[in-house]
Design a protein around this nucleic acid. Structure first.
Length: 482
RNA sequence: GGCUGGGUAGCUCAGUGGUUAGAGCGAUGCCUUCAUAAGGCAGAGGUCGGGAGUUCAACUCUCCCCCCAGCUACCA
């Protein structure tokens, strides 16, 4: 991923709008935002897409509960989601809605291509369907009450004629692609799961529903709505202008990274690439499935009511602190535990004490001992490697990247301790003080630069403090202790 | 039942066929005062899941077992 390519296209899954965003959504989104900001900083022409999945049956049910028209309901909810991310400072370039005219047009065109290819055939399906999952499930997957274990709901028995996509036709090509491109599915353990699924269990899947009133109509048969996944996955194409802005589309497709949660691997690592093959389009370079959170050790679930609301959280802690915590605490790709206690510990130790206090003490001494002036171009050996930070980001090891940056923070704190500017001040060694504080200054400047993708607001604050003509400490601490 | 990944300090994790097994956080003691009662230093804390084997030598390799997570099957 260290090629010199100058465009970068990254996507998050589009989210269902039948509820509010929780910390898991925020996690995916933060990672995507960090990567997007990194690539922009690097100078790549970057496109960061996110959006909402609105043609789903579960949205219809959610709307029914509120007594609203589905159309009204999804409009309202889509706006809630969009505003949430905007307010949290997420730098998406486009927020795609699957009910938009553009998306529908793209889906119809895509469908037509696959149809013309001969990959769609009518058939009959009988099975149990869980609306919560938006997929068919087998009896053996049900729990002791005959309910879907994830959604605690009885699945619906469906028997109808509908249309199928010849997924199995692409079995060999999929396996070959995965084999030849080890970077396609990450992390590695997910790749194994996918391979075993494709080899042993994959079947053609139904791509239409007769019973559905809501959703995109099948161009070749108006009585059918397109199955939500065959529609939703295409947002990654419609979001960058598929069949409507070919120049833009050709510039950004295929995507560099598609982030997903581990629950939707099958759709993104089997259905999706096969659909693209059928339509004659190149495959995304990497699909990365991250882990899930527990909250204080418990599975996050509606029944436990322990879902963490990122908006509420951002009232307690600056959102940068939440970003820092999630990226620093959880090795990307692993499952992690979210706990407020842990967040507070990290906040106080790393952000308030180490970084925030460093900025404070350094600028205070520059102000006090050097009249706000240092040599901003002093050449020193950097105590951490910006190159290492970059390499870690590009290999998606955000925790490592932050650890490397913190070497700079620790170095500066120790250097100040060893050099003791306050004693130099007493003995009147002004030149020496200025040299010491100049060194600290340039390290801080590099830290701010490096931190930009991770903590954009904080990085900007520091940059601003460092760019005033007469340097002085911030009027308020960067991160007040909690 | 099968497959995959994992079980290392209180917590989160890193690590190598070879002297006394590492980091960060937390807890303890000391030093310091520029700073958000922040910072620095030091010691404490582990029979590296259990057992057997290979080897001059294993935490690091092999086998068996136990436990955790994920995927998946079968029986019902």
């Amino acid at each position: 991923m260290t090629d010199s390519k100058n465009t970068f296209y990254i996507t998050t899954p589009i989210y269902y709008v039948n509820g509010k965003p929780h910390i898991g959504h925020a996690y995916t989104t933060i990672v995507a935002d960090t990567l997007a900001r990194y690539h922009r900083q690097k100078g790549d022409e970057t496109f960061f897409l996110m959006g909402t999945d609105e043609n789903s049956q579960k949205n219809v049910e959610a709307a029914k509960k509120t007594g609203k028209e589905v159309g009204v309901y999804v409009d309202e909810m889509a706006s809630v989601w969009r505003e949430t991310w905007l307010n949290l400072g997420i730098s998406f370039d486009r927020f795609i809605r699957t009910t938009s005219a553009e998306h529908k047009k793209a889906v119809c065109e895509f469908y037509q291509r696959v149809y013309d290819k001969g990959d769609i055939y009518p058939g009959e399906y009988e099975g149990l369907y869980c609306v919560g999952c938006e997929k068919f499930i087998t009896e053996s997957e049900l729990d002791e009450n005959g309910e879907c274990p994830d959604h605690k709901k009885k699945p619906e028995a469906i028997k109808e004629r509908n249309y199928f996509f010849k997924l199995t036709k692409y079995r060999d090509r999929l396996l070959e692609h995965i084999e030849r491109h080890p970077e396609f599915i990450q992390p590695e353990k997910r790749r194994n799961e996918v391979v075993s699924y494709i080899k042993d269990f994959m079947e053609d899947f139904s791509i239409s529903r007769q019973a559905m009133e809501w959703g995109i109509r099948l161009p070749t048969d108006e009585k059918h709505a397109i199955y939500v996944w065959f529609d939703a996955l295409l947002n990654y194409l419609s979001g960058i202008g598929f069949v409507q802005d070919e120049i833009k589309f050709d510039k950004f497709w295929p995507a560099d990274i598609q982030l997903i949660g581990k629950d939707i691997i099958k759709f993104h690592c089997a259905y999706w690439p096969a659909m693209l093959m059928s339509a004659g389009l190149p495959l995304p370079k990497t699909v990365f499935a991250h882990g899930f959170f527990t909250v204080d050790g418990d599975k996050m679930s509606k029944s436990l009511g322990n879902a963490v609301d990122p908006v509420e959280l951002a009232k307690e802690y600056p959102f940068d602190a939440v970003r820092y915590f999630l990226l620093r605490e959880i090795p990307f790709g692993e499952d992690g535990d979210f706990s407020l206690k842990r967040l507070q510990e990290r906040y106080n130790a790393d952000l308030a004490n180490d970084l925030g206090n460093l900025v404070q003490r350094a600028l205070n001494m520059i102000d006090k001992y050097c009249d706000g002036s240092v040599d901003r171009d002093i050449k020193i050996d950097m105590p951490f490697s910006v190159e290492t930070v970059r390499l870690h980001i590009e290999s998606l090891k955000f925790d490592q990247s932050i650890i490397e940056t913190w070497k700079g923070v620790s170095w500066a704190n120790k250097y100040i301790e060893d050099a003791k500017p306050w004693e130099l001040h007493k003995s009147g060694e002004h030149e020496k003080i200025k040299e010491v504080l100049s060194r600290v200054y340039v390290v801080l400047a590099d830290i701010a630069e490096t931190l930009t993708p991770f903590m954009p607001e904080t990085a900007n604050k520091i940059k601003k403090l460092l760019s005033t003509e007469k340097l002085s400490p911030p009027s308020e601490p960067l991160f007040p202790r909690k």
